[in-house]
Design a protein around this nucleic acid. Sequence first.
DNA 1: AATTATGCCATATTCACTTATGGTAAAATA
DNA 2: TATTTTACCATAAGTGAATATGGCATAATT
Lengths: 211, 211
Amino acid sequence: MSKLKPVLTKKQKKILAFIAKFSEDNGYPPTFKEIADKFLLTIGTIQDHIAALSKKGFLEKRAEKARGFIVVKNSDGGPLVSKSDVNMIPLYGNVAAGEPIFASDNIQGYITMEKSARGHNLHFALKVKGESMTDSGIYDGDIVIVRKQDAADDGDVVIALLDDEATVKTLRNSKIKAYLEASNSRYKSIINKPFKIIGKVIELRREYYPA
Amino acid sequence: MSKLKPVLTKKQKKILAFIAKFSEDNGYPPTFKEIADKFLLTIGTIQDHIAALSKKGFLEKRAEKARGFIVVKNSDGGPLVSKSDVNMIPLYGNVAAGEPIFASDNIQGYITMEKSARGHNLHFALKVKGESMTDSGIYDGDIVIVRKQDAADDGDVVIALLDDEATVKTLRNSKIKAYLEASNSRYKSIINKPFKIIGKVIELRREYYPA
DNA sequence: AATTATGCCATATTCACTTATGGTAAAATA
DNA sequence: TATTTTACCATAAGTGAATATGGCATAATT
């Protein structure tokens, strides 16, 4: 209903935005002087602005430290992306049978993922090929984010190594034996071949082109 | 096949890692002295290390600037997350008919998305409710990332406002009239109701729990 | 064996930067 | 109307921080 947000003046917004952008561009925040130069103001004026901004809680100032402040809130109130919240993980393409999956030659790029609070295990992403999982909503071209592990539970969608090829399947751990289930009825489940689980799918992404 | 990577010594790795972590934690890089204190070394020694690291291309040094260096490469060669590559967008939950969708009360959180090169239009995310799009691989609980726009092409998956309620459907722009198509045969398409397009789905995400 | 890179020290110098102080003036608020 | 906030100025002082030099001892290369 009602929200009392400390309002920034236009000037303050501009300065905050400049500090944020400068930090992004350069990897470190600007000095008072650098801000002053940008706005054709003097250092004293910037002192006042910084004081105002940190009093309003958009900035945190570390006393007596060069470039010692950080933008805490965005000028429009939204949260900031913190580098420590995000991870870069490699995206692997499909590999021909026999080729090593995790070869660095096979990295097609990197994608960002939210850093899962605890357990910063090893994650990677894989581009799905084939139609065998369409009934589970996993389509050709989708990207699955995988956590490396060599075991999983019944019903988990897993990446398995089968004849030296990586495939996406649902794991079935029946009492008699474990097998890999395709979710598309036109595809056969894999029951009598040995396989090795290399990871569990924890997220799926699909991009709709053209962007 | 062969890649010649400039190898870092253990000490250099440690120092690089410290600089990276310090920058993340504090929002600005450390000074020479702060590094020296951490490793119980002197400033002179750190000078050498910084020189070595930047000569090897892991660090970039801005001369005569306080805290003026940035980690360019990770010690293990992987790319760094750059804040400017990632955006925070709000995730909206489902709203009851009549309620405003973009109310800030309805923000269920924020998710990160790769910043699309150009066109930083307004994006938002929406949690899908219902089964009407399962044949297109969009399931209940999935999250769609939407770019705000009020028109779309035939076949685009869109978010439409219908009776004051936001729904995910496929847009059909036949010659006669435009309508919204459900992809699950058990659901009817919406042909004779007025609707308003508020955005186009550009990405889908599904989280598999438990993590 | 000779050379280069690593890893460390100390001291001195020179800016880079923040802080402190004390003004002036207009606009917003009580 | 009185008072607070915003928005600016100038100047001096005092550290914070990078740079410059030179030297020493090992390990790794050539």
